[in-house]
Design a protein around this nucleic acid. Structure first.
Lengths: 256, 256
DNA sequence: CGAAGCGTTGAGTGCTTTCAATAGTTGTGG
DNA sequence: CCACAACTATTGAAAGCACTCAACGCTTCG
């Protein structure tokens, strides 16, 4: 439960604190005997860097709540290259978009040693029927995901490369802050090519822009370690930042 | 109930036939006395071309099921221009992404004379608590929307302008087909600039591409009237078409 | 130590955009 | 009913942003 001082995704202070399902979770001090009282059966699973949580075309049985670490979701496209569709931090739910098809259309890959809660969806759905709060929570989480996707769409289709990257960094920064970490200093587990894919850019463009941002004093970057030294400057580069439904992307804990 | 022969969004044969909520709907031959038996209170609303169904920042109270016609959703971005985020045909549900914030972040505008069912969300949520099938239906619809958004994201960030347009036309074609209309001949209620915005392109690019497609014998287009004369040719232009989770975008009627 | 993978930087190309002009369409009011 | 205005769509020319290709440096790992 205690952690290192380093700001690193894999060492969040309290991994369940921000979890959507916290108040219904079996792990909340309850033993297995209370399963019926605290009804979500939680199977915690540890995954190493590069390991798959699920793969494209896998049957859909569980959704996953990230406890620690970080995970990317991606799909293989025609030419064999992979398209990154999401970057996920603790408290987020994964796999919800597989509900309708019954199988996963994306793979989820750990970007570092991470732990997740595996939640049988059938069980969760039953539970949602019994407890309005859980149902609301599910609808809420999905609504936020749609919201975020629309933001992402607008960003990619309308903003320049530099605005996209600035916007992305601010988004990451905000997420860390929401989870009690520094907004200006963090390790980004995504590789350059993952970032490029997520933003619809070429790797070289991302690399060039980071160099330029650094030259302009907006940030310092060393491999995966980022220091955002001029948040306001970054916001100026991505002017649409403030007007888009971005800021509420983080999944909140309110249950109606 | 009988309609004209013309293929036109506003004259769907049976407007409720494909509706998600059909089997729970008050309109299913039932009078208002049966409200408790057929529990969705359906207030049908007619909207004219250009009329708003809801606007950005409006409080979120209802979701809407499109019965006839077509609706676009869009958001105003920083510079005052509008970004189209969706194009919606009968049977689709609108407004689900406002659940988490409690207000709408997009406007919904009728593209032609249309009719929609206004469904109080609070009521629907209660109902979903009582009837597992409705809950599942809601989760399903949202899951599909996320699925589609991810497809759209991949498309916009990775495909060329011509591939995007071809892909879009095929998508529209498929939707019409799913609703019992011709896959090759339809009126597209979206303007060129709406299409451009939706696909992340400039109006001129869309116009140029349509001219080129026509010259190449792929389609015939006159204002809003489209004839896709070479579906296979279009598929060849958008090679990722088949491998993406596109084909299941249409909201189906299965309720678990 | 060499191979493999990731990241950076440079040069040149090309696709899409922007700017601009024209044509076609719709709607309004005299 | 026509004229005028406003809007939508098309087409051309030029410019720019991001991509591709290519080479090199750095790190990691067997």
């Amino acid at each position: 439960m205690k952690t290192h001082a380093v700001v690193d995704c894999s060492t969040f202070r309290s991994s369940c604190q921000y979890c959507n399902l916290y108040q219904f979770c079996l792990s909340t001090g309850a033993s297995k005997h209370d399963e019926k009282a605290n009804p979500i059966y939680k199977q915690c699973r540890k995954i190493e860097h590069g390991e798959y949580l699920f793969r494209e075309d896998d049957p859909f049985n569980n959704i996953y709540a990230i406890r620690t670490g970080s995970v990317k979701t991606c799909a293989i496209i025609e030419n064999g290259s992979e398209q990154v569709t999401g970057f996920h931090l603790p408290s987020e739910l994964l796999g919800l978009n597989a509900i309708s098809k019954g199988f996963h259309t994306e793979s989820a890959i750990a970007l570092e040693t991470s732990s997740v809660c595996e939640i049988p969806f059938e069980r969760l759905e039953e539970l949602a029927n019994e407890k309005p709060a859980i149902q609301h929570l599910l609808l809420n989480a999905m609504s936020e995901e749609i919201q975020h996707d629309h933001y992402q769409l607008t960003m990619i289709s309308r903003m320049s490369a530099e605005a996209r990257l600035a916007s992305f960094l601010l988004c990451i920064s905000y997420h860390f802050q929401q989870r009690g970490f520094s907004a200006t200093e963090f390790n980004l587990s995504l590789s350059r090519s993952d970032v490029a894919s997520l933003l619809g850019l070429a790797v070289e463009t991302v690399s060039r822009l980071l160099s330029r941002f650094q030259k302009e004093g907006l940030l310092c970057v060393n491999r995966k370690y980022f220091v955002l030294s001029d948040i306001e400057g970054l916001k100026q580069i991505s002017p649409k930042y403030s007007s888009l439904p971005y800021s509420s992307y983080t999944i909140s804990n309110q249950a109606s």
